[in-house]
Each structure stands twice: as C-alpha cells, then as structure tokens.
Design a protein around this nucleic acid. Structure first.
Ligand SMILES: [Mn+2]
Ligand SMILES: [Mn+2]
Ligand SMILES: [Mn+2]
Ligand SMILES: [Mn+2]
Lengths: 230, 230
DNA sequence: AGTATAATTTAGGCAAGACTAAATTCAATA
DNA sequence: TATTGAATTTAGTCTTGCCTAAATTATACT
C-alpha cells in the first residue's frame, strides 16, 4: 500500500519465481519448506499477496500460485540485487564464493537503485554472478542460456564451465579446490559407464581429475570447439 | 531474547547515544521527534528496552533515559557500521558526500561483522568518515578529538578542517563547492565582528573566500602551526 | 499554595507475519 | 464409489512496533 514491498513479500516472490521456473507453479508446502515457515503461514501470505493492488500472485485454493507480471518484476529485481551483491562481495570485498550467499540474502532487500547501479558499474556491468548464474539486466531481462550438466559429456568432448550449483557451501569449496570454476575449459577423456565417473583434464592444469556424478551433475557447461591451444 | 536486536531498537539506541552525549540524557519527546514517531510509542519502547536482559537503557518515569553499558556497546556498533558504510560508499562506490547518509542508515542494521571487517580493511582501517566524524575502532573505542568551530578562529590563525556538520545535504554541497573539506588547511586573515564573517584563504586555492557564521559554525577545525609552505 | 501548560504515561487498537490446532479438500487406491 | 492420507485452508493467538485518546505528572507562573 505504500509502494514498497516488505522483506517477507520479497522472499516469497523470490522462491515462487524459482519454483515456478522449475515446475510451472509453486505449491504451499514447497514455499513453506523453502522459507522455513509453516504451511498455514504461507497460505495466509499468498492470499494477501493475491489481493493487494496490483496483485503479486495468481492464487486459487489448493492449486498453488504463479507470479503476475508485477510479481515477476519484483522477483527479478531481487534476483538482480542478489547476484550483483554476491559478485561485489566476491570481487571487491574478497569474500570466498561459498560465503557470499548469506550476506546477499540480507542486503538484497535494503540497497537502493542507485547502489545497484553503482555496484554494477564498478563491476563492469557483469553478466553472471560468482557461481555463473545470469544476472538480470538493468531493465530486468534475463538472457537465456544453453548450458547443460557436465555429466552429459563424453570423450573426447571439450567444454567450458558456465555455472555451478550454488546452494551447497561444501560443494563450492570442493569445486574451488579442484579448479572447477566458471570460465575454465576442459577435455573429457574417459567415461566409466558403471559408476558414471568422468575423467577430465582442465586446460590450465597438468594433472587429470576424476569426478563422480555427485559433482558432474552440479557443474554446467557449454561445448567449446577445437583442441586446447598450446 | 534471541540475541539479535531489532532494527527499531538499534535506531532508538543510536539516537539515545547521540542525545545523551549532548545533554547527559535523552527525553521521550526528543527521541520521538528524532525518530519521527509519537511520544507514546517511545515510552512503550523505552520500557521494553529497560526490561530486557541485559537492559539497554536506564529508565525512570518522567526522567528520560540513558544507556547502560550493553546499550552503549550496541549504539557504538551501529555508529561504526554507519560511518564505515558512509566512507565505503564515498570512496569505493563514488557516492557524493551528501548522498551517503540515507543508504548507510539502512545498511548499518544488516551487514555482518565480517562485512564490517572487510570494508574496514579495503578502506585501510580508517579513522574518520567522509564528513570527518570519528569511526569507533574495531573494539568500539571512540577516540577523543579536539576540534572546535571555525567561527572561533581569528586572524592570523591557521587551521586544518577536521569535520563538518553532516546533517544538511545543501550545506554539504555548498561546502564541497567552496573546497571546505576535511584535511584542507587554511589561514584566517580577517574577522568582521559586526556580522561575524570570516575571510579565509585555503592553502590549495588562490582566491580567498568570505564565510558567514551559518557556515563557520558548522565546520570544525584544529589549529595547525606555522605558515603555509610554498 | 494553586493553576495553567507541557511532557509523559496509560489504555486500547491495529497491521504484519509468524504459530498451533482443527477443519476441509484433493487424489490415489481399494 | 468409498476410504484414507496428504496437502491445504481456516480459526484463533502471539509478538513487535506503531497509533490515538485519555489520564497523569511535572513545571512554571501568579
Ligand atoms: Mn533494481
Ligand atoms: Mn549465486
Ligand atoms: Mn561491528
Ligand atoms: Mn557522516
């Protein structure tokens, strides 16, 4: 009613956006689980969000919700804030990539449009966050990407890492230690069909490494043409 | 009760700290005016803040409040956050010094101790914010200062600007345009007792400038010895 | 001392956003 | 089609922090 959305609403919108991108819609219990609140609280909140002007979600009893244009815009705004902040913390303040999320989670609701713009400028209007997730543009367009799981590669394919799963700090630390970072290029030289293990070599490392599917399913790549340049 | 103070409590503590520094204690109506809430709301809040464990304020009906050690620590923590953020916005994100306050006002409640430390390191563990206000140290000590109003200088005294009043954006823009910034050194060469005007010359400028008391009372300086070096 | 005025406190409410417990609806299966 | 378990919604509370209106206290002046 005062134009500004509450932090709680913004958190609901973010998770609804994510769930709806994945499943078409978001259910009460999915939202409850993600936000760590009880389902009854979610129902209550969704009904409010559907009734304000303009409505943020389309809500019909027992059918889950999806975002209205207004809701989607607000969700993308938070997504841009979140990912810009993550990159800023990493690049400018030297945060390790497994420690940026929590801080961004709080800051995203609080920064002004000016600060968003200044951070983007200092960072060179970046396209992706430290984990490779695409940052919505200034006007909240989200460019489509083509990356797919590393686990789908077969020898002798070559690829560049675009993005990694960003919700498991242990995984992130492990990936960093292995050198599995966005931008890294690699060649697959062996696939073991029994356990799904993939033997790869990173272009900028000498030793090959062997990766289980727990890892390869969480690293997303694009094909890259040609052999490694010497 | 969960260890973390609400944003509202933190705002109360900040303003109580400021008022108590100035007047020894803070009254209900002073706090209400500064926070733009009604006095009844303040009374209510003060009673809560006096009753939690540990108490944040000493409260006695009709006598105003002062901070307990716990309250003062929390207030200094906010002060450190606020001033570090102001400097960070100015130095790293290029904010003009008259636009840093609002943003800092929101961010100060939200940054982690880690982010506080990282910002301080990137800034070289600074002592003062963009307006020259002293930043409490990491362990929340506030070093004493000796500065006094520029309006008290008389020719041919020389001084260095340490701090300027930071609560009037128009004044800040005007001071910047005049070159009246912290660190600037100057010589007073004329005082007009009728209107209090002060004629000064900044060391790094050629033209002298004339300042009314509206300005000279809001700029704080320390004496500096000797003549301007060529 | 007695009274007007200002400051403060009390009392009662409201909105947001969470919770628990109980009721309802859906969907799968017998 | 009837049953049943899971998901969802409803109903009623709670806490935080604000509000207005009314009561009270302090202060200053005659
Ligand atoms: Mn934005
Ligand atoms: Mn990320
Ligand atoms: Mn701190
Ligand atoms: Mn300042």
């Amino acid at each position: 009613m005062d134009g500004r959305l509450s932090q709680a609403s913004q958190d609901y919108l973010k998770i609804i956006y994510k769930l709806a991108s994945q499943y078409g819609r978001a259910t009460t219990s999915q939202i409850a689980e993600n936000l760590e609140v009880k389902p009854a609280s979610v129902t209550n909140m969704l009904q409010k969000m559907a009734q304000i002007e303009p409505p943020l979600v389309r809500y019909k009893k027992h059918q889950g919700v999806s975002l209205t244009p207004a809701g989607e815009e607000a969700a993308l705004e938070m997504l841009r804030h979140h990912r810009l902040i993550e990159l800023f913390l990493h690049e400018i303040l030297g945060y390790p990539w497994d420690e940026v999320h929590e801080e961004a989670e709080r800051l995203e609701h609080v920064i002004s449009e000016k600060m968003e713009r200044r951070m983007a400028e200092v960072l060179g209007n970046p396209m992706r966050d430290p984990h490779g997730q695409v940052i919505p543009s200034h006007d909240l367009e989200l460019t489509a990407t083509t990356e797919f799981p590393l686990s789908e590669l077969r020898p002798p394919q070559r690829a560049v890492i675009r993005r990694v799963h960003d919700e498991d700090a242990d995984l992130l630390r492990h990936l960093e230690q292995l050198g599995l970072l966005p931008q890294a290029t690699l060649t697959v030289f062996k696939h073991v069909s029994f356990d799904g293990n993939l033997h790869i070599k990173l272009d900028d490392q000498d030793e090959p490494i062997v990766l289980g599917t727990q890892i390869t399913s969480q690293v997303f790549v694009d094909f890259v043409a040609g052999p490694q340049l010497p």
